[in-house]
C-alpha cells in the first residue's frame, strides 16, 4: 500500500493502482469519456487529467491522465483546480464541435456551461467520440477486427484498409460498449449485418429466434470450451424449459410429501 494526498485528504491505495480508480473510490467525480472497466485505459479523451506534485519537487507540478498514472508514495493530487476545469471545458468545447448530435457530449458539455461550441462545427463529424472502447474490447476478445484507420483528423474506426473487417465475428461487443451508440447493426431474416458484413445467425430450435452468429458460437466453443449444443436453444426458451423442470420438481415434492 502507498500513501498519497488527494485534494488535501490522506489516502491509502495499492501500489501501482491507477489514480482514477483511487480518486473515484474517494467519491470524487473526475470525468472521463474513454474509460471503461472492461478494457485497458488508453488516455485519449484527456478529461481525467489531474495535477500532481510531490514534496521534493519544490513547487514543480505537472498534469497527467489519472487513468494511466500509477499510484505511488508521496503523490499530492489535485483534481478540480481552476486550470483543470478550464482545460476540461475547452476539451468539451472541442468535442461539441466534432459530435454536436451526441447526447452524452451535450450532457457533459452542459456541466461546463456549454450549450454550443465556440469553434467551427465539423461538417463530417458524427457521434463517434473516438474513445477506442470498441477497438479495445475487440482486442480483449483477441480478434482485433476493427481499429482506427487513417490519421489525425481523418481518423475513423473501421476494418483494415477501410474495408469490411475479415476477422469480425459479429459478436456485438463493440456496439454494446460504445458510449454514444454510434455503431450500427441489425438482425434480419436469420442474418446479422455489422461493419459492412453479413453473418448467419443460429436460430433457436424451439422458437426460431436468432441467438448468436455462427462465427461467434464457433469462437466461444473453441476459446471458452462451451459445449457444442449450448447454442441450440435461446436463453428465453432455456428459461421456460428450466421453469417447466422446476415445476415438475415441485409436483414431485408434493407427491413425495403426500
Amino acid at each position: 500500500m502507498v500513501q498519497m494526498t488527494i485534494n488535501g485528504k490522506v489516502v491509502k491505495a495499492p501500489d501501482g493502482e491507477m489514480l482514477l480508480t483511487v480518486i473515484r473510490r474517494q467519491g470524487i467525480d473526475v470525468p472521463a469519456l474513454c474509460d471503461h472497466a472492461a478494457v485497458e485505459p488508453c488516455g485519449s479523451c484527456r478529461m481525467c487529467l489531474v495535477e500532481i506534485t510531490r514534496e521534493d519537487w519544490n513547487g514543480w507540478k505537472k498534469y497527467v491522465t489519472s487513468c494511466l498514472y500509477p499510484s505511488e508514495n508521496g503523490l499530492i493530487v489535485s483534481t478540480h483546480t481552476p486550470e483543470l476545469q478550464e482545460i476540461r471545458r475547452n476539451i468539451m468545447d472541442l468535442y461539441l464541435a466534432r459530435c454536436p448530435g451526441s447526447e452524452l457530449v451535450q450532457k457533459m458539455a452542459e456541466e461546463y456551461g456549454l450549450t454550443r461550441t465556440s469553434y467551427k462545427t465539423i461538417p463530417e463529424g458524427d457521434n463517434c467520440i473516438m474513445c477506442y472502447a470498441c477497438t479495445r474490447i475487440c482486442e480483449v476478445l483477441g480478434r482485433n477486427a476493427i481499429s482506427a484507420v487513417h490519421r489525425g483528423h481523418a481518423k475513423v474506426i473501421s476494418g483494415p484498409f477501410d474495408d469490411p473487417p475479415p476477422d469480425c465475428i459479429g459478436c456485438l461487443s463493440c456496439a454494446n460498449i460504445c458510449p454514444t451508440d454510434v455503431i450500427e447493426w441489425h438482425d434480419q431474416d436469420g442474418t446479422r449485418a455489422i461493419w459492412g458484413r453479413t453473418f448467419d445467425l443460429i436460430s433457436c430450435r424451439q422458437c426460431g429466434k436468432g441467438i448468436i452468429t455462427r462465427d461467434f458460437a464457433e469462437y466461444l466453443k473453441e476459446k471458452r470450451q462451451i459445449p457444442a449444443d449450448y447454442f441450440e436453444i435461446c436463453d428465453d426458451c432455456k428459461r421456460v424449459e428450466l421453469a417447466r423442470k422446476m415445476g415438475g420438481l415441485v409436483d414431485l415434492a408434493k407427491e413425495v410429501a403426500s
Partner: peptide
C-alpha cells in the same frame, strides 16, 4: 501538424485542427 497528428487524443486531433481553421 494537423495532417501528421496521429489522432489518438482529443486536444491534438481536434484542437490543432480548430487552431489551424482560426
Amino acid at each position: 501538424l494537423v495532417s501528421e497528428s496521429c489522432g489518438k487524443c482529443v486536444p491534438c486531433r481536434e484542437g490543432l485542427y480548430q487552431l489551424r481553421e482560426l
